[in-house]
Design a protein around this nucleic acid. Structure first.
Lengths: 348, 348
DNA sequence: GGTTAGCACTCGTCAGGGGAGAGTGCTAAT
DNA sequence: ATTAGCACTCTCCCCTGACGAGTGCTAACC
């Protein structure tokens, strides 16, 4: 399992070269470009060894080698040095968070954009499952005769609103009452609890407004649905620049996969809830149509609790060093920003 | 300029066949498939005439003909019969609007989705320029110590919110006051006016809260920016199914074009503000990289006033009969729904 | 024993050539 | 005016052969 120093160097050179050029790498190239002090023949012998050990593959006899899944894995685990972000990139990140508003959806979207932009691959960001979320605040605002806005604020700073119709005989004062009852009952509780027990109590207190209560609960439900769907997915077009996606059929199957919410969630489940950055390569992703893709993901946190995941999806021939650095940096950055925004106030 | 009956029939057959198959159409095919009572040779003569008159083109000597821009134009103007929607499609439309909420952005997005889904091309929907919009309502809602939500409701039913920080010494009561002043001054005025004169008055009345006023104005500004950007663009992937977009380079140039807001707006400017459906074909779009595309667009209205535009973008080889019908149907449908939602209440 | 030069071999790519097929235009007959 | 026949054109596809990149093996070298 362990490789001697020269084999490591050669494997690293092959992986890096293949990542750059997307062409199978030959012994001559390696010997020349990375000037080892040895001849191509020697490299060839080493490459044959590496292939036998499972780190390299040959698309056909007599073409160069390309890294196998195992080769990439070894590279990621032992060989690569994270390529830390340069000052311009850090600057870009700072600037793009600076003027952002306080709402979590904005922050998420912004992070996704940055992720795609900095890596040139596809970016995914998810917020956590709503059931663990807490309702912070509910308010009914009279709008016009016959209409009102329901405003729901969730704990990590998400705001939802909806316009609803009112029965004829409701006054602004009634709305105020309803808001109060709702807040008293709901505030600070998790979504899952609300659905089970609280709703009955509220019904009792607000029998008069049966219809309204129903509507409000609907919005809350919708918020959770909406939120579940809120996977940011961006930078898919970046994939078109990768030579492995130069035929339309491949692109179409990938796109249709990415349209499936469920699959995206699956992609992001790191299994273990590791801290730190997780890299899954090719077959490790299980899904048959993704064998030529890799995912680099990490969880971001709010005051130490894992809140959601950010991830980059690209071809297995991915710039791991760069991507891992970016994901790591953005995760930390995101956690820090969320702490600043919501941490101190969000109780406990 | 006028064509005799047989030429019309032949032109129609060629256009329809080419739209179906994407292959140049030969005289034999026409004679056989569309059983005219005449031989291919006759058709050939007619086709030669049509080519001379500018309705057809030959990719190279001795291949079939394809319609020219002018050919499509004649087809759209004189030959095609609109393919009215079948019951299943109407049903789909009804269902997808039924449970939709009252907010305009939802309605827009829904319409865009439907448009893409029904036509299998790319769909665009724009809302009108914000400057003509009217602020209906503003409210500050205290959220926590130190934070508040600003809620802005625009006239055609769009709602925006933003969380903002408060100075230490502001009370819920202060917020109420500010809301009142804002509403008194702003309600019912157009955005453009607000920016010029009202802001000064408000400043005077609310000197104490200078910082807050600024933040609120910012949100309003942002709303307008956000709204300007709010061009719904969907179904772009449908394009990948069209043979004319089977090479990646073409797709990439198209995508990069569609990323440019300005260009999209230009695409949707119908020049004349016609009622009804406008079709622009190939070169009529002006833009060099869109010579092989067509746009079918129409304005939707709120109580008779044009409010925004919906459009379908596809290859020149587009199913015009179908698309025109869908655009027409959805425009009317959309106008009707908007009237129901906002019409009766929206002043006047 | 590790390293290297040399050499035969394999395989993919690319340009060139030829045949098949589709479609045309023209001419002459109907 | 219509049609059949025919020569012509052009694309597409397949086959071929040359080329180049890269390999594996063997024998020589340090």
């Amino acid at each position: 399992m362990d490789l001697d120093e020269r084999k490591k160097k050669i494997l690293r050179a092959i992986v890096q070269d293949f990542i750059m050029t997307a062409e199978p790498v030959g012994s001559r190239t390696i010997a020349r470009k990375y000037n080892f002090g040895v001849s191509p023949a020697t490299i060839r012998n080493e490459m044959a060894d590496l292939e036998e050990m499972g780190y390299l593959e040959q698309p056909h006899t007599s073409s160069g080698r390309i890294p196998s899944n195992q080769g990439y894995r070894y590279y990621v685990d032992h060989l690569m040095e994270p390529a830390s972000l340069d000052e311009a990139e850090k600057q870009l990140i700072r600037v793009s968070y600076r003027d952002k508003v306080k709402e979590i959806s904005e922050v998420i979207r912004n992070t996704g954009k940055l992720l795609a932009q900095l890596t040139n691959y596809a970016a995914l960001v998810v917020t956590p499952h709503i059931d663990r979320n807490i309702v912070r605040f509910i308010q009914l605002i009279p709008l016009h005769k016959g209409q009102a806005i329901v405003l729901v604020v969730m704990e990590p700073g998400a705001v939802y609103h909806k316009i609803m119709d009112l029965p004829e005989n409701i006054t602004a004062c009634d709305l105020e009452t309803i808001s109060k009852v709702f807040n008293a009952k709901i505030q600070g509780h998790q979504m899952s609890e609300i659905k089970l027990t609280l709703i009955r109590e509220i019904y009792l207190e607000l029998l008069r407004y049966k219809y309204l209560v129903q509507s409000i609960m609907e919005l809350i439900d919708e918020s959770s649905d909406a939120k579940e769907e809120k996977i940011y997915l961006g930078g898919v077009f970046n994939m078109l620049n990768q030579p492995e996606f130069h035929n339309i059929e491949r692109v179409k199957t990938l796109l249709s996969l990415l349209e499936q919410e469920a699959l995206l969630r699956e992609l992001l489940e790191t299994g273990e809830d590791d801290k730190g950055v997780t890299v899954r390569i090719g077959k490790e992703l299980k899904h048959a149509d993704m064998q030529d893709c890799s995912v680099v993901s990490a969880r971001y946190q709010l005051y130490g609790d894992p809140l959601g995941t950010i991830a980059v999806l690209g071809p297995t021939r991915m710039q791991y060093d760069k991507v891992v650095s970016v994901v790591e940096y953005l995760t930390n950055n995101l956690s820090r920003i969320l702490d600043e925004l919501y941490g101190p106030r969000s109780g406990k």
